[in-house]
């Protein structure tokens, strides 16, 4: 064993709970999820933690480590000083179920509110062809592993529970952006719904979603801001709006 770790792990449910002190041994190269598993195996047999791949690809082990939203499987123990107490809590934007497990169903409900791509009429499966340059933009967004760290850190819902009904969050803005940038998508009201139904206007570009994204997706620069600009084209730019009506440019863009 390389070092002795002092942890504070939040334990409880949606009614009550608190931080509990734990001391545990840690090996070289271990990540926080390894340590949680050791605690689970040796000291807290009923500690609830959600995890799956241990490779930063399933997005299951999202939690807050020393107050920062992170994937436990991608957080090296060695990145913390020897004398630092590591505090581990569940995500603080969502209701807790037990210990480190939260109820993230808010996100699945929001996902269902976004219509899938609508292909041109008469186009059969296997027929669509896209150029690589057109695919690249949305490929970045397809890297999303749905860990919901961006949703968790977004202050619009983290700090204002009442906004959840009218704000979908950064994970779904990249989904909407991906579809709105899709060359073959025929649904033309995505900008309108992004603003009016999904609450794009709530975002004030503080970029926390981008900061915490484990896949390094440029959520703000490549999805949210481009969507805000597209919304501005239709809703806040009378010159652009008039031009689009006269020349019907939407078809050729």
């Amino acid at each position: 064993m390389a070092r002795t770790l002092k942890l504070r792990i939040w334990r409880g449910d949606d009614k009550t709970g608190g931080l509990q002190d734990v001391t545990v041994e840690a090996n070289h190269g271990e990540v926080v999820l390894d340590i949680i598993h050791r605690v689970q195996a040796t000291q807290m047999g009923d500690l609830a933690v959600r995890w799956n791949c241990k490779a930063g690809k399933c997005g299951s082990c999202s939690m807050e480590i020393n107050g920062k939203p992170r994937l436990a499987c991608m957080t090296q123990v060695a990145s913390y000083p020897e004398d630092e107490v590591i505090t581990i809590t569940p995500l603080r934007a969502f209701p807790v179920i037990k210990d480190l497990v939260t109820d993230v169903s808010f996100n699945y409900k929001k996902a269902m509110e976004i219509p899938a791509v609508v292909m041109p009429e008469g186009m059969k499966p296997g027929e669509p062809r896209m150029q690589q340059v057109d695919v690249e933009r949305s490929q970045e967004f397809r890297k999303c592993i749905e860990c919901f760290l961006c949703q968790n850190t977004c202050h619009v819902i983290r700090d204002h529970e009442e906004n959840k009904k009218s704000f979908s969050g950064p994970r779904f803005f990249i989904r909407i952006a991906e579809l709105d940038m899709h060359p073959l998508d025929m649904l033309r009201n995505r900008k309108k719904t992004a603003q009016e139904e999904h609450g794009l206007g709530f975002c004030n570009i503080t970029k926390c979603c981008t900061e915490v994204c484990p896949e390094h997706i440029k959520i703000t620069d490549n999805a949210i801001i481009p969507m805000k600009e597209r919304v501005a084209d239709e809703k806040y730019d009378p010159v652009r709006w008039l031009g689009s009506k006269i020349r019907r440019r939407e078809e050729v863009l």
Partner: peptide, 26 residues
């Protein structure tokens, strides 16, 4: 709003850039 990521902001209410005056940012 917020001062830093995962640091709770002090405001009780938040409407972002959906209303005046911040809607001007559009």
């Amino acid at each position: 709003s917020p001062p830093a990521c995962a640091v709770a902001e002090p405001h009780a209410k938040y409407t972002g850039e959906t209303k005046a005056p911040l809607i001007v940012n559009n």
